[in-house]
Simulated assay, not measured.
Amino acid sequence: MTTARRQLIDAEATPYYHVINRCVRRAFLCGEDKVSGCSYEHRRGWIVDKIRLLSSVFCIDVCAYAVMSNHYHLVLNIDLETQKHLSPFEVIERWTQLFSGHAVAAKFLTGETLCDGERMLLDSLIAKWQERLGSISWFMRCLNEEIARKANREDGCKGVFWEGRFKSQALLDEQAVLACMMYVDLNPIRAGIADSLQTSDYTSIQERLQGQIQMKGLPTEDKPSPTPSPLSIKPLLPFDGAATAARQSGIPFHFADYLELIDWTGRAVREDKKGFINSSRPKLLTELGIRDDAWLTSAKEFRRQYSGISGQWDAMCAMKAKVGGKWCRGKQSSMALHPD
């Protein structure tokens, strides 16, 4: 029996979620269809541009993404603090970037006086829109509906484009966030369509590396420019390894450590790739007490190791009990998230 999305996504339990969506009948979302000879590569840009636009409107940050030929992965962070402290004006301004809004909201924005009934209606609208601005379900709805319409229009057809509603995994601790981000960023290398992080097109790790190059003033490979937007496009959620738990404002690791680990992992997940794994362990594996073999298994099979929840076993059981489930997947294979 299908579980209600509101039970699977609980921002109070964890703000981090891994979401995946796949095309119906495994049809080509992007890339090149070798059977028909048609290229859909440009659609990758549609998805990345829309993800970044929606992140700038919603109180949701993008930690990692990978756009593949018939599916895509996202690691998202719900920014509860920003959502809770939005002013009525900010809520309306954000919501009307995507939807038509309401005449009462338009009157409020222009400074017109509202009667008591209009004020009550406005308060209910703002409360509803504010809640939705922190909703991954609404984020995904806005993303998938537009991409489906554009793709169907381009293909000259109608009907269902996505296989079903998106799948989600709750990431309960920083080890789970790290393992999932690594799994997402290494998708093209694991699939054999890229042989380095720099050539892993339409992934967050490539974008982060290009950002580092641009900061140093070095030339980067030309990419299609993002779709123009009146919004200030929000960057990927930054790494913030120096932050304390009480003042966390980004991904709880240093980018240099993440880069060291993903390079080490990428060399191992491609069995056909020449080279060797340096005998010195990446700093993050040592700090988190994760075994090498367990980590590599997680980097290759994260989706299969876990169902809707990933993290320490006790935390997984507690969240499963909270949403009404009876069992968890991952105890025997979750070594990567348990210290030696």
Rank of each mutant, 00 (worst) to 15 (best):
K107N: 01
S36H: 02
A321H: 13
T14Y: 06
R43K: 04
W327F: 12
L285Q: 00
K322W: 12
P15D: 00
S87N: 03
L98N: 11
Y17R: 05
S135Y: 11
Q312E: 15
Q305E: 09
D123W: 05
E163I: 07
K216C: 03
A242E: 13
K128G: 14
L197Q: 00
I92L: 15
G101S: 13
V184F: 09
A243N: 05
R208S: 08
A151S: 10
I47N: 05
R5I: 15
A179P: 00
C317S: 14
M120H: 09
Y72N: 07
I136P: 09
P235V: 08
L231M: 14
I205M: 11
A106H: 04
S298F: 02
E207S: 07
R329G: 09
A105H: 01
D263Y: 11
R52L: 07
H18G: 00
D61G: 03
V19C: 11
A11E: 10
T265L: 00
E146Q: 14
Q305Y: 10
S200P: 03
A318H: 15
I126Y: 14
W264V: 05
L288E: 03
Q214N: 15
L218A: 09
A170S: 12
V91P: 08
D222H: 11
E146G: 02
L125H: 11
M335K: 10
T14W: 04
G330Y: 01
L218D: 08
G289N: 02
L80G: 08
T110L: 09
I92W: 11
A336C: 08
A294V: 04
Y306Q: 12
M316L: 08
P339T: 14
A66C: 12
A11V: 05
A256W: 01
T265R: 00
E287L: 12
T220R: 12
G117Q: 03
V62C: 02
F161S: 01
G289H: 05
A245M: 09
G275T: 12
C157V: 13
I20G: 10
G325A: 07
P282D: 05
G308D: 05
A194F: 10
S204R: 10
I193R: 07
A194Q: 10
S69A: 04
D155L: 04
R132L: 06
L178N: 00
S225G: 04
M319G: 01
F161H: 04
P252S: 06
D33I: 11
Q130S: 09
P282C: 05
I205H: 07
E81P: 01
M182N: 05
K84R: 10
I262D: 03
R153M: 14
M335P: 10
F108Y: 13
I78L: 06
K274N: 14
R208F: 08
S280I: 00
E271C: 15
